[in-house]
């Protein structure tokens, strides 16, 4: 019996992607995980096993910052889930309404912030909300709501929520687009069949469209989760590496950056930084696994 020949063309065609991906993603990832197991004393690198993790979770100074950052990250994600995604779905539902005029204009206008740089978004909103030069105090005054104004970005109790909402404003276009595409993919016949059975308007949305776009909502949730737990730019551009006021906007990304690269008089510590990065990797991995095995497998898919 002849052994099957190795199909060399497959290897050749896969090679570029595999090589590039390995060089710029897999190798750095594993090297970061490896770096977390070392420390540096007097310019010499030593292997210390899990010592960095013991410091991170055992030393109250480090663990306090870690749990604070994780908690803030959870809140950041929570705001995105309860604000960004419902609004995105609602916008998509409205946009897909056949009788809506200027749909393309709205779609573009809502999607544009997504392609803006974090730096622009951060600075623009910082100026808009500035108690000194910003237009928010004057606008609120014009409608008699001046008492609502506070220096939102400077108050511990509001800063993180404000930043989350800025991020929602920037990225609401993404769930909108994905859901919009999913809604367009629903065949007319299904909706018409529902109409024959007397399901129209809102109940058509709840009973027919929503179940059909659930897989897309699942994908959006997991994308939001990964993006939020990797977030860094917005906080860094608006609040700096110390994520003020009083670390109330500190998330895992800024905590990792501060530790890895150092800040002001604090010299960078790549090893502790890698330990935090490994922690972030672990959290994201667990989150994605819960989704993949716990949720996605249970979602029902419909074939048209």
């Amino acid at each position: 019996m002849k052994r099957p020949r190795i199909k060399w063309h497959i290897v050749v065609f896969l090679a570029p992607a595999v090589l590039v991906y390995t060089a710029i993603m897999i190798f750095p990832l594993f090297n970061t995980l490896r770096l977390a197991l070392y420390t540096e004393v007097d310019q010499v690198r030593h292997f210390v096993g899990l010592e960095n993790f013991r410091t991170l979770f055992g030393n109250p100074h480090w663990s306090g910052q870690f749990w604070n950052a994780l908690g803030n990250n959870m809140w950041f994600f929570f705001i995105h889930m309860i604000v960004q995604n419902p609004i995105g779905i609602a916008l998509a539902a409205i946009l897909s309404h056949p009788r809506l005029r200027f749909a393309a204009l709205y779609r573009t206008a809502i999607f544009v912030p997504t392609i803006l740089s974090f730096v622009i978004v951060g600075f623009a909103w910082k100026l808009i909300l500035s108690p000194i030069w910003g237009i928010t105090p004057d606008m609120l005054k014009a409608v008699g709501l001046k008492w609502l104004f506070a220096p939102y970005l400077g108050k511990e109790e509001y800063a993180l929520t404000t930043l989350s909402l800025i991020s929602v404003w920037q990225f609401v276009g993404i769930p909108m687009m994905l859901i919009y595409a999913a809604l367009l993919a629903i065949p007319e016949e299904v909706l018409e069949a529902g109409e024959v059975d007397g399901i129209t308007g809102f109940s058509a949305f709840w009973k027919i469209k929503l179940p059909l776009i659930l897989p897309s909502i699942g994908i959006i949730s997991i994308l939001t989760f990964v993006a939020n737990f990797n977030a860094f730019d917005l906080i860094y551009t608006t609040q700096g590496a110390l994520a003020g006021p009083a670390f109330s906007t500190d998330i895992l990304g800024t905590f990792m950056y501060r530790t890895f690269f150092g800040f002001q008089l604090q010299l960078g510590d790549p090893h502790m930084g890698s330990a935090i990065a490994s922690g972030m990797f672990g959290i994201i991995l667990i989150g994605v696994c819960i989704y993949l095995f716990g949720i996605q497998t249970r979602l029902r898919r419909y074939q048209f």
Partner: peptide
């Protein structure tokens, strides 16, 4: 300090 000093930056 001025009103809203909590959000006042260095360049401000």
């Amino acid at each position: 300090l001025g009103d809203g000093y909590e959000a006042q930056t260095y360049p401000d």
